[in-house]
Design a protein around this nucleic acid. Structure first.
Length: 277
DNA sequence: CATATGTCCTGAGAGC
DNA sequence: TGCTCTCAGGACATAT
């Protein structure tokens, strides 16, 4: 489940594409239902071929490849991966972009579950079609004041609110549990009830955890599918405090037993001793 | 407007 | 062993 640190790692790993010209675009044969590609592949090929990649950008949890006029938006969702070398397997490659020049270079969009999407739009429409109405400020760009202001406007449980990309872009299920644990805030706390001191603590925990996770190239979970662009696993999973650790002893207080609850249909992990309502 | 729920999908793991 | 069932969750559509 690529979240901000994983998608950031994917983007950084694609740097070798910069300055390269698109030679061919293809959808390798795949026995699964095709993923959503907009516009349809024939049009995508026609518009993208010959274009030079000038910039690679992360937009929330999306990877964006920019050319002079176009933006190719890759959304990995649950199980997608953007790599330059070997994907985890050959069966789930959903899109392949070959670049001209030497050495040979191809970008692969691999997605086991096929929930991911590919979208090609004019780069002038990024704001109106992707950001506006969909994405709040990036979790690593937002100020502490704006973070506090946004949280003060909702009564939802903090864990649920952190997953809302319109509120704040980039946080997903794993890092939401991790940052709440570091900040010692109970995941069910209504946002409006979190005092300024705790909000400040949460902001700092968010930055600390995201930056450390990026330094570790993200988290590769037990399914092993997330890789960086060079096909190596991330290492932040070794630093997980609570995520997927139900029943284990809290690494902070060494007393509480890590507990799993479900919020909005998603797992939340926390320490009942460190994180109180 | 704010909030909640259903939906998409495949593979891993549980249970028999 | 091999089958069936449940679950995982990001983001969007739809419902309340």
């Amino acid at each position: 489940m690529p979240e901000l640190p994983e998608v950031e790692t994917m983007c950084r790993g694609l740097a070798a594409c910069l300055g390269r010209r698109v030679q061919a675009v293809s959808t390798p044969p795949c026995r699964y239902r095709p993923i959503s590609i907009q516009p349809p592949i024939a049009s995508l090929q026609r518009r993208l071929r010959g274009q030079v990649v000038t910039e690679i950008r992360r937009l929330g949890k999306r990877v964006v490849l920019l050319t002079a006029e176009l933006a190719l938006i890759l959304q990995p969702k649950m199980s997608g991966l953007v790599v330059l070398e070997q994907p985890p397997d050959a069966d789930h490659v959903r899109l392949k972009i070959d670049f001209s020049g030497q050495p040979p270079l191809s970008l692969l969009f691999w997605d086991r579950r096929g929930l991911g999407t590919v979208e090609l739009i004019p780069r002038s429409e990024i704001e109106s079609r992707i950001v506006s109405g969909r994405l709040g400020p990036d979790a690593l760009a937002i100020s502490g004041e704006e973070f506090a202001r946004r949280l003060s406007k909702t009564a939802r449980p903090i864990k649920v609110a952190l997953l809302d990309q319109k509120l704040l872009a980039g946080i997903g299920n794993l890092y939401a549990s991790e940052m709440l644990h570091m900040a010692r805030i109970h995941p069910r706390t209504p946002c409006v009830d979190i005092g300024p001191r705790k909000v400040a603590r949460l902001y700092q925990a968010m930055r600390s955890i995201l930056l450390t996770a990026i330094a570790h190239e993200g988290s590769t979970l037990s399914d092993g599918t997330y890789r960086n662009a060079l096909n190596n696993p991330g290492s932040y999973q070794s630093q997980h405090r609570v995520y997927d650790r139900a029943g284990l002893t809290c690494p902070a207080c060494h007393r509480g037993k890590i507990t799993r609850i479900v919020q909005g249909g998603r797992s939340t992990f926390y320490c009942p001793n460190c994180q109180r309502l």
